[in-house]
């Protein structure tokens, strides 16, 4: 599934948030979106998901304009994984995943055997089928994100939009969840993920896009655009990128020289 964004602009009243943004996401591509707070990452996602109406420009899914999709049809193409999914009411893991199949059933219908099988398969894909009977409140944060990923897979959509999916997770779970997301790329899913952790971009993504001052600062292959200069422009601190055992890591220079 291919996504094209052409000359997209958006403003909240007089406050410009996105200015002439253009990029493409190819099938099976993992694109990481980096930018500081308020750079417009979340706004871009809201536009791609049709939550906000664009000011100008075009969003095309498989060459079809986004506006021509109903909510239900759009849900079959694009799935959204938020930073944190919470619910006042405590549903079971299975029911949570089953909600993903809603875009595949009649408007007045309920999930039947087929949808239940899809939900179970989605749980099995992430090796969490043993949690299906548990209540969402009784599982860990890392497991919950996997459940939300399973729900997205149950939607049957092939473009996944992930808004800082690991922001609320501990160090180990961040890595595990990112690994799982990365494995989806190999199955042909197109992924666009925002993060505040540049190493996630270095380790997992094919392409990186930097958003700065409402515009695209750089967009290209990870190795080409993940440079010290770009990172410094975005985060306002000097950051070196060093390579160890064939893997790159970010190394911020601390201003306080005594700091260890």
């Amino acid at each position: 599934m291919r996504l094209d964004v052409k000359n997209l602009s958006f403003a909240y009243k007089d406050h410009k948030v996105l200015d002439d943004v253009s990029f493409s996401l190819n099938e099976g591509e993992f694109l990481c979106l980096l930018g500081k707070n308020g750079a417009g990452k979340s706004t871009l996602f809201k536009l791609l998901l049709g939550f906000l109406k664009k000011e100008s420009g075009e969003i095309l899914i498989e060459d079809k304009k986004l506006e021509t999709y109903s909510r239900k049809l759009l849900a079959r193409e694009i799935a959204y994984i938020p930073q944190y999914s919470s619910n006042t009411f405590d549903y079971t893991v299975f029911d949570t995943v089953l909600m993903g199949t809603t875009c595949r059933i009649d408007s007045l219908g309920s999930p039947k055997k087929r949808e239940k099988r899809i939900a179970m398969e989605a749980l099995e894909r992430f090796n969490i089928s043993h949690l299906s009977h548990k209540l969402a409140s009784s599982i860990s944060g890392g497991e919950r994100q996997l459940v939300i990923l399973a729900r997205a897979i149950a939607q049957g959509s092939h473009i996944l939009i992930l808004d800082e999916p690991t922001a609320n997770l501990d160090y180990g779970n961040q890595f595990k969840v990112m690994n799982t997301i990365s494995s989806l790329k190999d199955m042909g899913y197109s992924i666009i993920l925002s993060t505040h952790n540049p190493e996630q971009a270095l380790w997992f993504s094919d392409k990186v896009m930097f958003l700065n001052d409402n515009k695209i600062l750089a967009h290209g292959n990870t190795d080409d655009v993940m440079t010290s200069e770009n990172l410094k422009t975005i985060y306002d601190i000097p950051i070196d990128i060093i390579e160890k055992n064939g893997r790159k890591i970010c190394f911020p220079t601390l201003e306080n020289k005594d700091a260890k």
Binding site: G50, F51, P82, T102, C103
Partner: peptide
């Protein structure tokens, strides 16, 4: 019962 954005994204 889900957040507005999530509910909409589910179609």
């Amino acid at each position: 019962t889900l957040d507005e954005d999530e509910a909409m994204s589910l179609g």
